[in-house]
Simulated scan of single mutants.
Amino acid sequence: MHKLIVLYPEPTDRVAFEAYYRETHLPLCAKLPGVQSINFSLGVTPPGDGPYFGVFEASFADEAALSAAMSSPEGRAVEADVPNYATGGATVLTYPAVSYPVGA
């Protein structure tokens, strides 16, 4: 499995960010070819208390699937949309995820 993580610093306007993110950006993300799951959280810290306002996580089968998704027309649309809401910018990380068994 390969993960795509996006960390969002504090935006200029939290309410505007969240409305646009939920109504416009996440539906674009859901169209990424090969995406297996999407998770996100907004308002992870109170204003001024931390480095990040939000976090996004998407899972793909492998690095090739993530690369294909991001180079697709849908992936380019997702990337081009970020400046429309992320006034604080965004930090993007990708990595192979390794599962560790619990409860054994």
Rank of each mutant, 00 (worst) to 15 (best):
A61H: 01
D62F: 01
G103H: 10
D13A: 06
A16F: 00
P9Q: 10
M70P: 06
V35K: 09
S67N: 15
S37G: 12
L42T: 15
S59D: 15
T24D: 06
Y95K: 01
S99V: 07
T12G: 03
G103P: 03
A68W: 00
A97F: 04
T24G: 00
V6F: 00
L26K: 05
A86D: 08
V102K: 06
A77Q: 13
S37E: 12
P33H: 06
G103N: 11
E23K: 11
P27L: 07
D62R: 06
F17T: 06
P11E: 07
A86L: 09
V82T: 13
E23Y: 00
D13Y: 02
A86C: 13
V78S: 02
D62P: 08
V44K: 03
E79C: 04
P47N: 03
Y21D: 04
P9R: 07
T91M: 13
V78A: 10
A97Y: 04
A104P: 08
G103V: 11
G50P: 08
S99I: 02
A19K: 14
F53S: 01
P101T: 05
T24R: 13
E57M: 08
L32E: 09
R22A: 13
V15E: 15
E23T: 10
P73M: 11
K3L: 14
T24C: 03
A77Y: 03
V35A: 13
A86E: 07
A86G: 09
V44D: 03
S72T: 09
D81Y: 05
E23H: 09
L4N: 02
A77V: 11
S99H: 05
E18P: 00
T12K: 13
G54Y: 00
G34F: 03
D81F: 04
P47I: 04
V92Q: 12
A80R: 06
V35M: 14
H25S: 07
H2V: 06
K31R: 15
G75F: 02
P96F: 04
F40T: 11
A30N: 07
K31H: 10
T45K: 05
A58W: 00
S59C: 09
T45P: 04
V6G: 10
L7W: 03
R14P: 03
V82N: 03
V35C: 06
V15Q: 15
G75D: 09
T87D: 07
P33T: 13
L42F: 09
